[in-house]
Nucleic acid binder design. Structure first.
Lengths: 358, 358
DNA sequence: TTGAAAGCGCTAACAC
DNA sequence: GTGTTAGCGCTTTCAA
């Protein structure tokens, strides 16, 4: 592979100055047509590929946006895959993909392409170091971040340098641009459904707090209970911890051992709900016959589960698109007032709550 | 948002030269610990975010890899979404996502993160111009491209400049690095299944050729027929065109009108198969009762379809990972011999071929 | 162990 | 309409 030709090479070959070459690509209208054609021909003959680094350095913007996401079980997964025999496929049941963040990511990508931005996607996981985030941040003009993908202090340091939009409510009204959904109303809706339609009164909430969006969901859960005149717990039955699914599984296992199951498990997310269903079914408990289970997110795996998972669907693609839209506006107006957009969610009744199969 | 601090600012504040600042980040071991701490403190206080553009320009590599993908119906989709009322969600049935390319993309991302590369994702569609591809190519050290996402001539021009790996067999053994699956064996396997297990002998192949991987699938289809002593068509029943699904739908509609349906439609891809099932069902034809249908890919939507789609699953994540692995090796050894890796596929029997529900 | 200085390839004044 | 030129922020050789 020969050394990449530069503006100099192209200018040389076309018999013009480098400025003319640059203008030919950036401001075609400012170059005489005949000249432009000569330059384009030279560029084509040489296989000229403009360097984004040089351009970015020269004009102070990269023309790219990034989403910082995180991969569920990424580390474990990465270790497992290479060892599998040829045909094996850990994603065959779509439990690991696509999840909430993957659909948001798609929205980000589609919107970036539509608006002429390049998209970079950064991968977080529990072990994400500041270096990794800074590396991504240094490559783009703006950054969208999913909840829990970046430590708070790192996030605030980055926000001071480039536009950042969070895909969740910033803790304690920390300000900053963000896009969210109405978590509280959504969770309240499923909970009310369980109470009023299925006449279930002993409900437990499963899933980590320590995250503003989950807190809002728990709040919705409690509101529904109180509104129905039922006792509302002060805390989720399973909470916190780095691995919500494991935490929930352990809790359910304990309840199983005590023979003290509720009538329904209201889970903070679909993955938690699916894990809980696994545990129950392994223990021979019928869902929804003996215990109902509900989730939150609306991922594909929930639809494929048996029984199909009743959940609250977030408009993930739209969330991603909105994040990009906000970033682009923020880049144009760095000092405007913080923007916040909230989307509605949708109750999706399937079988795991006790509703009949479609 | 204050102007981003540079090495100069950090050096200034730390009372050292810019070289020392650079070394502190790139070659920490070459800087005395005390000095390093001073520099790091200064960087942190200033909120220093290294510029990837500057670094990329200086050392001739970006540290990023890209996947060039394309979005199914991207254009139409993009126009539709913004007009939908709040709760509406065009992806709710997962027909548009995740598709084959989305799972490959995931593999690319996971592997890039694991290997310390940043990932960029480029979006193609039917209207992809060379400019768009060149823009992406100019931002990275290597590029993975999905089949049919980039015009051949553009592809070869790019390949001359940066490492490129194709996720399909290059046409006419054009050489170049690539990763594929055993399309022929996979399609032969489904076809034989229809013939030997379900005793179906009148089969039609639906889906565009003009793509090496689809050609291989068609070949596998013919081989199975001939091996069974059945007549093998020289051409697919529906073929070519920019929109395979539409093409197939039209063809099926015509057959429907003529009352000349085969016993099975063997489709080149899952999306084609799902479209065909839609058309048949809309016409009141029972699948698989009156006509069997099979796909190829193994996307999520096939599992969710009723009847569930019999198909051949490709190890998409692994394909993506392999592409990245090859790129990284190629970057290290630009002039080595072209690499080609082929993965096996897996026959997935579900209901649309006539097999009983799981 | 640290500093000085020469680029990396491009953009955009500004001059012609 | 086109050319000259001064950076953009960083890496890296070479000296000190």
């Amino acid at each position: 592979m020969a050394k990449n030709p530069t503006v100099y090479d192209v200018a040389n070959r076309a018999g013009v100055s480098i400025a003319t070459v640059s203008f030919t690509f950036r401001r075609p209208e400012r170059v005489k047509e005949s000249t432009r054609n000569v330059v384009l021909a030279a560029a084509r003959e040489l296989g000229y590929l403009p360097s984004a680094s040089a351009r970015g350095l020269a004009d102070g913007r990269t023309g790219a946006l990034a989403l910082f996401s995180f991969t569920y079980l990424a580390d474990a997964h990465a270790d497992v895959v290479p060892q599998l025999p040829g045909g094996a496929d850990p994603n065959a049941d779509f439990r690991l993909f696509p999840l909430y963040m993957d659909e948001v990511q798609r929205g980000v990508e589609l919107e970036c392409w539509r608006r002429g931005y390049a998209v970079m996607v950064g991968g977080g996981s529990k072990t994400t170091s500041e270096t990794v985030v800074a590396d991504i941040a240094g490559r783009v003009d703006g950054l969208a971040v999913l909840p829990r993908s970046i430590p708070d202090d790192v996030l605030s340091r980055i926000s001071a340098r480039i536009p950042v939009v969070q895909l969740s409510t910033p803790p304690h009204g920390t300000g900053g641009d963000h896009v969210t959904v109405d978590n509280e109303a959504g969770m309240r809706a499923v909970t009310e459904h369980l109470i009023t339609v299925h006449r279930l009164h002993v409900l437990q909430f499963l899933g980590g707090l320590h995250a503003s969006d989950i807190e809002a969901r728990f709040k919705g859960f409690r509101t529904a209970l109180r509104t129905a005149g039922l006792p509302a717990p002060a805390k989720p039955a399973a909470n916190g911890g780095a691995d919500w699914e494991a935490e929930a599984a352990i809790r359910v296992g304990a309840l199983l051992a005590e023979g003290d199951l509720p009538q329904a498990f209201v889970c903070a997310t679909d993955p938690v709900a699916l894990t809980v269903m696994d545990v129950l079914q392994a223990a021979g408990i019928a869902v929804p016959g003996q215990v109902a289970v509900t989730g939150f997110d609306g991922i594909a795996a929930g639809r494929m589960a048996r029984p199909a998972l009743t959940t609250v669907r977030q408009p993930m693609e739209q969330l991603g698109r909105a994040a990009v839209d906000i970033l682009i506006k923020r880049i144009a107006d760095p000092d405007g007032a913080p923007v916040s957009r909230q989307f509605p969610v949708q109750l999706v009744l399937r079988e795991s709550c006790g509703c009949p199969p479609a």
